[in-house]
């Protein structure tokens, strides 16, 4: 167990280092640099100062080395766009993305898995309806889902159609602020959650159907276990094994999806920040965002491994991984 964890941690570290270094080098080697943000009529001394401040006069590898040495001491450099250190910017954006992604994951889980148990264990009119709805949701990826929900929101006025807070709520104290965020959250969270819930439903249904036909389930049925208990105690738990493996992938899907959702609904998260930074060639902000994204991914795969560990005794007893 300890060795396994250490190996995962080493992989996580490698992932974060590789992703952020690649992002930094790519941005550095791209045509144009952040000084073009100063505009065509910028004074040469301003341009020179900006190039000096962001190490653009050093060769790319030296810059990477310098950045890595500072990053090891948790100094991730400054953002040119925002003219302040990168770390607080990223922490804030990552927090917003985490709130969005966690809400979406919770919705997807509590919606998708029970529905999948229903559709996977019997064939009825209800199951067919859920199945159809799930196929439709599966075909509305986050880009389309967020556009659709924004359209509905602007048409009906039930929910705010974008942003994370309204202007009025910023100075109104934290309970009002929290309430305001809670009003802005459902739209992007649903846009992100619906396709994922459909994926969970389909996978759970498939896993369930496969498990029900296993000999041990038939044996339990023969012993006189009721259908309901059979489903929950005997069939559902083993079927979770394949779901746990999906959770690791789901984190990647959530990150990918959150980029478009944040863009469409103006949610101030990591994806939006990364996009702004990339466009402006804001080199240290790009590297910082990439590092944070890498941490999210590593965290996701770790959680998925731990879930698998908890759900499957075969893995726990050490023969598996």
């Amino acid at each position: 167990m300890i060795r396994f964890l250490l190996r995962r941690l080493a992989f996580a570290l490698l992932l974060v280092i590789a992703v952020s270094s690649a992002a930094l080098l790519l941005t550095r080697l791209a045509p144009g640099d952040l000084t073009s943000e100063l505009g065509p009529r910028a004074r040469p001394e301003d341009v020179a100062r900006a190039r000096e401040r962001f190490d653009l006069n050093r060769n790319p590898l030296a810059q990477l080395g310098g950045w890595a040495a500072r990053a090891a001491r948790l100094d991730f450099g400054d953002s040119f766009l925002y003219d302040r250190p990168v770390s607080p910017l990223i922490r804030r954006a990552a927090g917003n993305t985490a709130v969005l992604a966690a809400t979406a994951l919770a919705i997807a889980t509590f919606l998708g898995i029970p529905l999948g148990v229903v559709t996977g264990s019997r064939s009825s009119a209800l199951a067919a309806c859920i199945r159809g709805a799930s196929l439709v949701c599966l075909s509305i990826p986050p880009l389309l889902a967020s556009l659709l929900l924004v359209f509905l929101a602007s048409r009906t006025g039930w929910l705010p159609s974008g942003g994370m807070t309204s202007v009025a709520a910023i100075d109104a104290g934290w309970p009002a602020w929290l309430l305001d965020v809670a009003r802005h959250l459902p739209l992007p969270a649903l846009a992100l959650a619906l396709p994922l819930a459909a994926t969970f439903e389909r996978l759970q249904a498939q896993a369930m159907t496969e498990t029900i036909h296993q000999p041990f389930v038939v044996a339990a049925l023969a012993r006189g276990v009721t259908w309901r208990r059979l489903l929950i105690d005997h069939a559902w738990r083993p079927s979770l094994r394949s779901m746990c493996a999906i959770y690791g992938l789901a984190i990647g899907a959530l990150l990918s999806g959150s980029f478009v959702v944040e863009y469409v609904t103006a949610w101030p998260g990591l994806g939006r920040l990364m996009y702004e930074a990339l466009r402006a060639r804001d080199i240290y902000l790009v590297a910082g965002c990439a590092a944070m994204g890498g941490i999210f991914l590593a965290f996701g795969s770790l959680v998925s491994d731990l879930l698998l560990f908890a759900a499957d005794p075969r893995v726990r007893e050490g023969s598996g991984k």
């Binding site: 790519l26 980029f259 466009r279 991914l297």
Partner: peptide, 19 residues
């Protein structure tokens, strides 16, 4: 390694660093 990365970010980064 590539499979772990969220593809759209890689695409976005590669596209954004071109003109």
């Amino acid at each position: 390694f590539v499979l772990v990365l969220p593809a759209i970010y890689v695409v976005l980064a590669l596209r954004a660093v071109m003109p």
